[in-house]
């Protein structure tokens, strides 16, 4: 790897880490506007993160070293996953044959410890959240493979960068395929990042939460790491979504960046709209919702295979 591509990778990673709170601010701002409020500043998530660092850390009485190490492992795993994603045509920092598997499994590592840390508290609230997270993750995993993974199997590339850049728009059935894939990825993003129809990030009742309840008993620097990594994770899925549209840029850096920004804006509006007009599903309906996304993926793939 030459120096420029490493530099590109580092800049991409810094951008992802730097902009991810802004995206959350953007979503919240639009949500406020949709509901007729003025809303907090776009930079509010940054202020909140800064505030969290300065707070005292409180650990529950029955918690162990798991509670102490998990925020760090969670954060690092998410950052490593973020380092595999391309922004525009920049080479990501980590890119090798088969990195799509490492990407999925790094997020798996984060989830493994997140669930353990929730159970570490020894409270039913956290246990409930952990059980839900583990259950829904089982159904969310196949969606990733049926979307991004299916392009990998069709194109023969196994690195996320190559997979996205193998997308060509000259074949109509492939275009339809990509569009349906992007819908599935949106559903996946909503699930994995605990957004609206699956989980309500702003709920006030412990029994109805998934992600928030798992970090209920964390504060200070631990909560900072959890919140920041959940922001990054949301941004990761946004980039997975935005990357579908790079082919429109026809190998031009600036056009790629413009597309990136436009897609991000559209997605934040979509998230805000969904969160304004829908309410959270019943917990027992969430697997159906996820299986629906999987079914779309399978159907899409079958249609593509036979109309090619």
């Amino acid at each position: 790897m030459e120096l420029t591509s490493i530099l590109q990778g580092i800049i991409s990673l810094v951008l992802i880490l730097g902009l991810s709170p802004l995206f959350v601010g953007l979503v919240n701002k639009q949500k406020a506007i949709f509901t007729g409020r003025i809303g907090a500043s776009l930079l509010q998530p940054y202020y909140e993160l800064m505030k969290l660092i300065k707070k005292e850390t409180i650990n529950a009485t029955s918690s162990s070293f798991i509670s102490a190490v998990t925020p760090m492992i969670n954060f690092i795993a998410v950052v490593i996953a973020a380092a595999m994603l391309p922004i525009s045509f920049a080479h990501p920092l980590i890119s090798f044959e088969g990195d799509i598997i490492l990407f999925a499994y790094m997020l798996g590592l984060a989830r493994f410890f997140q669930v353990l840390a929730a159970m570490d508290i020894g409270s039913s609230f956290e246990g409930m959240g952990a059980a839900r997270e583990a259950t829904f993750a089982v159904f969310a995993e196949p969606i990733f493979f049926f979307t991004v993974g299916s392009i990998a199997f069709i194109s023969g590339f196994t690195s996320i960068y190559d997979i996205y850049h193998s997308i060509r728009l000259d074949n109509l059935s492939f275009v339809v395929f990509i569009i349906v894939c992007s819908i599935s990825v949106f559903i996946l993003a909503v699930t994995e990042c605990s957004r609206m129809p699956v989980d309500d990030p702003n709920t006030h009742l412990e029994l109805t939460m998934i992600h928030e309840v798992m970090i209920l008993d964390n504060s200070g620097i631990d909560l900072f790491l959890y919140q920041y990594s959940s922001y990054i994770k949301l941004f990761i899925y946004v980039i997975l979504e935005a990357s579908f549209f790079y082919p429109f840029a026809v190998q031009s850096y600036t056009l790629g960046i413009i597309i990136f920004l436009v897609v991000i804006f559209i997605l934040s509006a979509a998230l805000a709209a969904v969160e304004t007009i829908t309410s959270r599903f019943k917990m027992k309906n969430i697997p159906h919702y996820l299986l629906f996304a999987t079914a779309i993926g399978i159907l899409n793939l079958l249609i593509y295979t036979f109309t090619r």
């Binding site: 162990s64 989830r111 669930v115 353990l116 020894g122």
Partner: peptide, 28 residues
């Protein structure tokens, strides 16, 4: 692809299973 999805599904279930035994046996 279907095989890969199957293996990923197994991975997800294994995570659920091993978080279960570790957390129930050791934590709390």
């Amino acid at each position: 692809l279907i095989s890969a999805v199957g293996l990923a599904f197994v991975g997800g279930l294994a995570v659920a299973c091993f978080t279960k035994i570790n957390s129930i046996m050791f934590l709390g």
